[in-house]
Amino acid sequence: MKKVEYRKEDAGASFTQEGNVLVISLKEDLDHHNAMYIRERADRMLEREAIRHVVFDFTGVDFMDSSGIGVIMGRYKQVIFSGGKAAVCGIGAAVDRIFKLSGIYKIIEKYDTAGDAVQALGGRR
């Protein structure tokens, strides 16, 4: 497991690579403000590392608006080209409602924990 250091402005999320799965563990509300940093950070890792799948772990985060849909869809579009998948986990009631309303569950799978997601996607944990 590779832990990546992040700067203060990236405090909205931490990024871990497990096998070929990038796990983005959200630490704060996923709004437009945090989405900008997460997008930038995730894309840097997707460019440099051998990553195939992306998991967004919402454990401990109970707010997301449409900016979150944008950032997840954006990463989904990137990994799908190389046969990868995007998944979410640790979803509370409020975030679940946003996902349901957006219709994102048609293309993105939901798991209980990051471990479940990583295992299902074929990474290691």
Binding site: R39, D65, S66, G70, V71, M73
Partner: peptide, 14 residues
Amino acid sequence: DMERSGMGFSFMEA
């Protein structure tokens, strides 16, 4: 370009 989903007003309405 900013990855806006275009769902803002839909969410406000919903």
